[in-house]
Structure formats: C-alpha cells, structure tokens
Design a protein around this nucleic acid. Sequence first.
DNA 1: CATCAGGGCCCTG
DNA 2: CAGGGCCCTGAT
Length: 329
Amino acid sequence: MAKRVKAKKLTHKTTVRIKPTVPFAFDYTLHKPDHFTSGDNRWEPGVRWQTWAWKGKALGLKFQNKGTIANPLIALSIFSVKALSKSFFDSLVKEVEYRYNLNLDLKDFYKKFSKDKVLGPAIKKLRGMRPGHPSSLYEYLIIGIVLQNASVRRSIQMFQTLLEHYGTLLEFNGRKLWCFWEPGGLKNVDEQALRALKVGYRAKSIKKIDEQFTNGLDEEKLRKQDRAIQMQELLKLYGVGPATVWYLLFDVFHHWDFFNHVSPWEQKIYSKLFFGRDPEKPVSVKKLLKHFERYGEYKQLAVHYIWEDLWWRRKKGEYIPWLEKEIRT
DNA sequence: CATCAGGGCCCTG
DNA sequence: CAGGGCCCTGAT
C-alpha cells in the first residue's frame, strides 16, 4: 500500500531546551496509548519523534527526556532542510508548549482530587501528565473526519493513505516519518480522487474542510474566543458535528471543564470504569455525564486521567479482557 | 455467500 | 426532531 517515494532529508539540526512546569511526566504527556498510531510519529520511553508542519516548513522534531518529574527538562531537536531563524524557533517552541500544555499548572486539580476514591490512584500513578495533542486544528479536523463511523483499523488505514498521498515523507535522525500537508493542500485534489483512497463519503467533508479552512478560519484567533464561539464556528464546518467538536474542544482548545458528549464505545468503557457495569449493558449517557459533574471545572481532565490510566495499564502488559473486546483493532 | 453495524453527520419530511 | 442514507470493512 505504501507508495515508494524518496524521503526529504532533514540535515539541519538545532536543539533547544524546554523547562516544563513541575511536576512533569514526560512519557505520559508525550505518548497517549489510546491515540491511534500512525506514520507521523514514533515513541519509546524517554523519546518521541514527531513530524510537524509549521509556517510552510516540514520539520522533524525529536523530544528527549533529560529531567525528572520534580526537575523536568526536555531537549527538543528540530530537524529541517535549511537553517532557520531565531524567531522561527521561538514561535515553534511556543506552539509546542501550547499543544502539549507544558506550562499547565496542575496543583489545584491535584489538591482537589488526590483523595478521590476513583481519581486519586490515577493521579498518583500519572502525576505530572498533561493533556494535549500534537496536531493543529486543521490536522485534527482531518483526523476527526476519519474517526467518524469507522473502526480503529479503518481510521488508521484512511489516515495513513491520506498522509502517503498528500503529505511529505521526511527522513531525520535515522527515521522516516510522514509529515502532514498544509491547509489548502487539497485545493487541486477532487472529491473523486479522495474517494479512490477509500475514505468513502468522508471525501466530501475532507475536501470542504480544506476549502473552508483556507477561506479565513484562523486557529490563532479562534483560540482567543470563548468556548461558545469556538463551538459555533467549528459546527459551521461541513462534516463536523457534536462528537468531533467535543474532541476538538479538549484536545485542540484545551477546555478541561466541558463534557457534553459520549460516543458509543466510550460509553461502554466508562460504564465499566465508573459503575462496574458490563460494557454490553452500559449506563445511559445522561447518567454518565451527571456522574462527571462531581469533577466540576476539571471534569474532562479528570476523565482523561482515568482513561489514560486504563490504556497505560494495557500498554504495560496488563490483560484487561473486557477492554480487548471493545477495541477491535 | 449475504447481511449488518460501526469511535457521525447531513438532509429530508 | 426523528430517522434514512452514506463508503468501506470485518464480523457473523
């Protein structure tokens, strides 16, 4: 399936140091085992390689853990074709800090919920974990579209194929990874061509989002608006509904306090986690949402901790039979 | 084999 | 505001 193409070699390397706020857990922040793996990143303990389209440049990033939870330090190496300016690096680092929430203050959240029966143990284990996602709004929208009405395996296939057709293969630090195309990159691609990649009816959404996005949607500006405006603007995008917006508000716009949607597979998992129920006989969405109210302004963050704890347990080798049944990769 | 549901959304009535 | 249809794929 992989197209045979020549990788763009990123021979320039610049390393900068980033000091996140304390406490900081490198692996729990830089790797989320529930996010589907794809050709744009690689993780191993203490290291993450990630491609990054930024201001017209296709970059390779390598994050290395050089500190501890109590005294954190990240070495970020930026690989590029040509040398880049100081102001370019500054803007990039600022964006990295934003997307991974490296300056987030978790004290109040921990103070409020460290003793919570369900959340407490997760906080203890994952102490220093930030929520966050490496994608821009545009990139996340494309990912959101391929998640719709599809199994994990199919989503991965669609995303990988899109990357391989419209992205750029980069080679840096001895690795080859695909980099996302820039917004507007599908201008000369018609819907039929997208359909040929087996994305199905999502072709229309992808195409329209690429158009609508280049026609004035500005991520920077939207970040500064309040949540209601953000929702309203996102829902205007063709193919974006409540489920996709819910993901976006958390992962891209960093609202920790907003929880209005539960998708069917998540409903099953939450039912088991929070109510001990058989996932096949899930608790109603309404009841789940009401349950999350106890976490107040941190409800989405709280669920993120419990959710990630579950996936890390699996990642670390614990066999969770009911979960395996729900995943169906 | 055929049929169906799936990590939604749009559109119609 | 409920419900049919949509692409494709793996499960049954």
